[in-house]
Design a protein around this nucleic acid. Structure first.
Lengths: 179, 179
DNA sequence: TGAATCATGTAACCGGTTACATGATTTT
DNA sequence: AAAATCATGTAACCGGTTACATGATTCA
């Protein structure tokens, strides 16, 4: 049994939210909104769109304004497949492929100066990340009605903020312990 | 520039901690200790060990007791390479490839019943994970001296517990909001 | 009109997974 | 002696990345 593919479902979800998107716009979505929890490059997306088109999940149209652009929308079948995917419960937790943990794991001595270095660096990275996420929250969800329009997106963004704050708190507490 | 390989450094770290380990023992390490933040299967590890041996990072020896087993230790060069890797600061945060976020992201309606379903399922998974991590903490670090012997491992384990608790807290608060 | 970037596509490569395979050792 | 599992290895496949490539559109 081959490994379960996720990418096509993400693309279905994006097209569902923004009918008429182009492949390029889908690509940029992976560098902004979805980029926090999934990555995909254009060289992966274009062939995937072709495949989904061939499978009848999406329909492509063109315009006279721009010869190269293709505008994608979901077919009924595509909508069905997306809903079917969303209906399936998530039954496993992800692993955290994370360099900080990995390196820290192999440092045995409490007084190794790299313990402090790793903590400081990680703190700086997370502070930057936190500022970015908060700025995004203000930008994308300036008022209650924008929250209601994309509630799930709002949830996972606030979750990201909460998680980042939690990690910063943890780093702050252990920083006291190691001195 | 090809993507940076991590696996060989993890293997170096494992062998450094437990000189004389076999490939099989390294494999099991990925299912227990390191399994929380990195995965590797034996069919990846054995060729990697051969390569590292050919590169002079590790030395293999055999015993009369068991014809097939190979016991690995670090060469001076291997130790140097490991230290060099540990010295390099971590300058990027990982992304969280996570099905919960992904599906939630595409659910726009606050009242969609899948919001609650996803939250409940995620809560159950995290509770199980938390119990497992706490049990591991008790098992691996029963006393202060065991902490001092593997301080980094202790840190990332307690970080995992803190993160899991944080996520459970977050789930509990938003569960109130959606009703 | 030249430069930048928009927009899509292909090809080579690589890390990792699953499946296949084999013999040694230990347990029943 | 048979069964289980220990221990190592190989091969096929696949998802994803980087690099290569090309033409259209927009901007200066």
């Amino acid at each position: 049994m081959p490994k379960k593919r996720i990418l096509p479902y993400i693309i279905l979800g994006i097209i569902n939210d923004r009918p008429g998107v182009t492949g390029r716009e889908i690509t940029t979505e992976f560098n902004t909104e979805i980029g926090d929890f999934w990555k995909a490059s254009h060289s992966q997306i274009y062939p995937e769109l072709s495949r989904m088109n061939a499978d009848g999940w999406v329909a492509a149209s063109t315009s006279k304004d721009n010869a190269k652009e293709k505008y994608y929308s979901l077919t009924d079948e595509g909508k069905r497949v997306l809903e079917e995917w969303l209906d399936q419960l998530v039954d496993t937790l992800p692993i955290h492929e994370d360099m900080f943990s990995l390196k820290m794991y192999f440092i045995n001595d409490r007084k190794d100066k790299r313990v402090k270095e790793l903590i400081d660096q990680q703190t700086a990275l997370l502070q930057k990340q936190l500022a970015y996420l908060k700025q995004r929250q203000q930008l994308v969800f300036p008022n209650p009605s924008s929250i209601d329009a994309h509630f799930g997106h709002y949830l996972i963004l606030s979750r990201g903020i909460s998680r980042t704050e939690g990690q910063l708190d943890w780093l702050a507490t252990i920083k006291k312990d190691i001195q």
